[in-house]
């Protein structure tokens, strides 16, 4: 009995003593941390992807609280997180549009030819060191999945020999942009529905030899674009996303199908004829002659001619035109 009591007391006493000691120590040695770090950390996505340039969400939160990182530095969280972080920090952030990664190459197994058979390490960086890769095109996607492995969100997959980004999963963190040895991946604003899916700077004749869907530098798109949104340099067309209005005319004109447009999302202007005052402002601004009607009369949109550029919507003084 005595032994049990003795051991109980000594062990219990020791436990109590250590407990008190630790409690006192934790008070005495407590570190004062910025309470904002914790609150910022809570609103972050917690993916620890490192796209912000810090080792993880904890480090980013600490950097924001210390004023070293911008409140909208988390690309993954997007506007929503940026706004919450900004409200914790008491600063304002501008709304930034969500951007999505896009692989600028369509040269899959059917469309592009290889110049040799590659049997090395399954990695784009390794492959591209050997005469710019095995693809006939020195600019094209090698499809060995360096970006797939780099993506922390499982948003990229290889389809028929080229990498494809799943826009629903993509957070626009930009890690794949850094990973791609060919510099083929670009972050494109979500609202932009038209893209030139080629970065080859080779002359047209050469491109024709190795790829069915490469930009051959014919400049048809440049001529077709009514909004001056396509720049042409180094045998390659490039869309200025700030100027592009998603009219998709360039994609219709492109002979090789290099320019991609999401035609499923194409809209047409519709005039609410009840309220149209017949001012002809829309008719004058339309670059495709898609609106008909006389002064003081109701105007009508010719559905087959309308490209959905949306210029008339902005021009209409009584705001009766909508995109559908």
């Amino acid at each position: 009995m005595n032994v049990i009591l003795l051991s109980l007391l000594s062990l219990g006493g020791m436990g109590l003593l250590f407990g008190i000691l630790l409690a006192v120590a934790s008070k005495k040695f407590s570190i004062e941390t910025d309470p904002r770090v914790e609150t910022i950390r809570d609103v972050l996505p917690g993916a620890n992807c490192g796209a912000c340039g810090y080792p993880g969400c904890d480090a980013f939160a600490a950097a924001v609280a210390a004023g070293e990182a911008p409140a909208d530095g988390c690309t993954v969280g997007g506007t929503n997180v940026a706004r919450q972080v900004a409200s914790i920090m008491g600063v304002d952030v501008e709304d930034r549009e969500r951007r999505i990664a896009r692989v600028l190459c369509q040269g899959d197994c059917e469309n592009a030819v290889d110049k040799y058979e590659y049997k090395g390490i399954e990695d784009c960086v390794a492959a591209s060191m050997l005469a710019d890769g095995f693809k006939g095109c020195g600019y094209g996607c090698l499809g060995l999945g360096t970006c797939v492995r780099a993506c922390p969100f499982d948003a990229i997959y290889i389809d028929n020999g080229i990498a494809v980004v799943n826009p629903d999963k993509c957070t626009g963190c930009g890690i794949c942009v850094e990973a791609c040895p060919k510099g083929l991946i670009e972050l494109i604003p979500e609202s932009s529905l038209v893209q030139v899916l080629c970065i080859s700077k080779d002359p047209g004749r050469q491109v024709r030899d190795y790829c069915k869907v490469g930009c051959i530098g014919c400049r048809l798109c440049v001529k077709a674009c009514q909004f001056d949104a396509i720049e042409f340099a180094d045998n390659l067309a490039k869309i200025d996303y700030d100027k592009c209005v998603n009219c998709m005319v360039c994609a219709e004109k492109c002979p090789t199908g290099t320019i991609y447009a999401d035609f499923a999302k194409r809209k047409v202007a519709v005039i609410d004829e009840e309220n149209c005052i017949g001012c002809t402002a829309c008719k004058r601004v339309c670059k495709f002659d898609a609106i008909e009607g006389d002064v003081k009369k109701k105007h009508r949109v010719l559905q087959d001619k309308c490209t959905g550029c949306g210029q008339c919507v902005e021009k209409c003084p009584v705001k009766v035109i909508s995109m559908e």
Binding site: F18, L22, A25, F29, I31
Partner: peptide, 11 residues
């Protein structure tokens, strides 16, 4: 207990 304590002191 020692490890906990040491951690606090070092921190």
């Amino acid at each position: 207990c020692l490890v906990q304590f040491v951690e606090m002191v070092i921190q």
